[in-house]
Design a binder for these strands. Structure first.
Lengths: 192, 192
DNA sequence: GACTTTTGAGTCAAGTTGTCTCATAAGATG
DNA sequence: CATCTTATGAGACAACTTGACTCAAAAGTC
């Protein structure tokens, strides 16, 4: 039944989602309307309505299509692992699509419950993985953590958010070093 | 001439700006339309058009009406001064109006040049004052700065932004202490 | 080749946007 | 207090958007 999905449907859906993502990236969430998406996707307006009766859901699905950065399970030694992943996070936050989704999450969370949930999930996921990494580092004797671990995500990822949202510019390796330092004192060599 | 402005004009303008701010706070920038602002302000629709022919300008003016946080000129000893001001910044970022303007700046900067300018000005102002404070602290022998001072705003304010935008919650005094620590090593007493 | 489903074009009512006009009322001026 | 000036609100208006429909034709399935 749903074994082989109708290629017409997948084609339409993908064209629509791609168009929605483009519009989100270029002009923000308010540009993602049935009319504009249909025009951009070169698809009948009714087709957009058929698949997404409410445009809010279309926006949500378009956002879900952008792979948001997150941490995988940590590995020892933790320091180089973390360094690498913070670099990836910094670079991904600079990508137009990721940036558009991030700002939409931040903005939309203020009025749309569904987006609030999405934002909280993102923050929770990133925070949990980061804390897991720090815990592992402590257990491995690599790190002597400073202060409350619940503040670690804010301290280490906040600066990257600042660079991405408020003060656009590259994130130097030196800055990433300082993010690591904010977690506590590392007993491993600086460049292990 | 323009000596005594017509009280009718000021009354209308203020009612309109207040309504625009409310809508921005409650439903985001896309809710700030002539129709909705007029209804909220209990003012004729034509009146809104008369004062703000383009709704973009209305949004900008409504945002400009919200006092955004920034640092005043620093004073010695710098450590307690900075501690106090970071606390104020953290608290202000939690205010609904300030939060709404912040997210709008961050979001709107992606597509509207005028808002990009506003965002850059905010970042520049905050960054300059913060760096001035750190320079003063160094000159006074209070601080041994760690790394590039251009990264200081991201390191110290980024975490507050993270708490305000992605992971809502209170900012503890302990977290503020760690923000200070991110600037470098303070030679003054912890609680001077 | 006959079938089912998706599609795009189009219609429609309701609502929004931006512009204009005009009587009225509020404020300035003497 | 009477008169002049200007901002206002109500409403008219065309152009456009939104969301919901219908239906013939095209695309895909069997």
């Amino acid at each position: 039944m749903a074994d082989t999905p109708d290629p017409r449907v997948t084609r339409s859906r993908e064209a629509i989602l791609a168009a929605a993502r483009e519009l989100l990236r270029e002009e923000g969430p308010s540009a993602v309307t049935h009319l504009r998406v249909a025009a951009r996707a070169e698809v009948g307006r009714a087709t957009v309505y058929r698949h997404w009766p409410r445009s809010e859901q279309l926006l949500t699905d378009a956002m879900a299509d952008v792979p948001m950065p997150f941490f995988l399970a940590p590995a020892t030694p933790v320091r180089p692992w973390l360094e690498r992943h913070l670099r990836v996070l910094a670079d991904q936050l600079a990508l137009p699509d990721v940036l558009a989704v991030t700002t939409t999450l931040v903005q939309g969370a203020r009025s749309r419950p569904q987006i609030t949930t999405q934002r909280d999930q993102l923050a929770t996921t990133i925070g949990r993985q980061l804390r897991a990494a720090l815990t592992l580092a402590e257990q491995a004797g690599e790190l002597q953590a400073a202060g409350d671990s619940r503040d670690a995500p804010a301290l280490m990822i906040g600066p990257l958010l600042y660079r991405a949202l408020l003060e656009p510019g590259p994130v130097s390796d030196d800055l990433i070093d300082r993010l690591l330092a904010a977690a506590g004192t590392w007993t491993t060599d600086r460049h292990a």
